[in-house]
């Protein structure tokens, strides 16, 4: 299989994604993703004070954060009234900082790397979004969808 494309060709600029500092609240994160819904970006990039990436808040992280703690024990036989799930203590949970819910960023990819390498890292790290670094500086992200499109196009040309 042959593809000339490098990660830098598929990179999405940072500014296209919602950003938040890690002490921002779950409520603010929801607002961010709500207003970003039409753009198709479904992840909040989480930074620290020095604008360094510390994590990502995905849809699943948010949904998980919305659930009360006891719901996590559902499998152990705790009965749940599904329709009332969000009512219980949600105000409090909405005010919690997102660092408690986010997925830590565990890997990056260099802008010059091949897209297959990026795909490989995603599979290993079980993520669909990878931070892209160029010369030590974070320049954006690549997502699994774009990689998938490139790679499958190449496969069909084989």
């Amino acid at each position: 299989m042959q593809t000339e494309k490098r990660v830098k060709d598929l990179v999405i600029p940072l500014s296209d994604y919602p950003h938040m500092p890690y002490w921002g609240t779950l409520k603010e994160a929801i607002v961010q993703l709500n207003v970003a819904f039409r753009s198709g970006h479904d992840t909040v990039l989480v930074f620290d004070e020095a604008y360094k990436l510390v994590g990502m808040l995905r849809q699943r992280d948010i949904l998980k954060g919305l659930e009360p703690k006891f719901a996590r024990h559902y499998e152990e036989g705790v009965p749940i009234f599904w329709d009332d799930l969000l009512k219980s203590g949600s105000e409090k949970r909405l005010a919690r900082p997102i660092k408690e819910f986010m997925s830590e960023a565990t890997a990056t990819i260099d802008a010059e790397d091949s897209i297959l390498k990026a795909s490989h890292i995603m599979l290993i790290e079980d993520t669909y979004l990878l931070p892209v670094v160029e010369g030590g500086k974070l320049i954006g992200v690549v997502n699994m969808g774009d990689l998938f499109h490139e790679i499958t196009n190449a496969v069909l040309k084989l």
Binding site: Y51, T106, V133, K137
Partner: peptide
């Protein structure tokens, strides 16, 4: 809300250089 400025070392892992 939030941290003392520049006190994040060892608290969260920082992956890349500053954006």
């Amino acid at each position: 809300k939030g941290p003392p400025p520049m006190d994040t070392k060892g608290f969260l892992s920082v992956l890349a250089g500053s954006a």
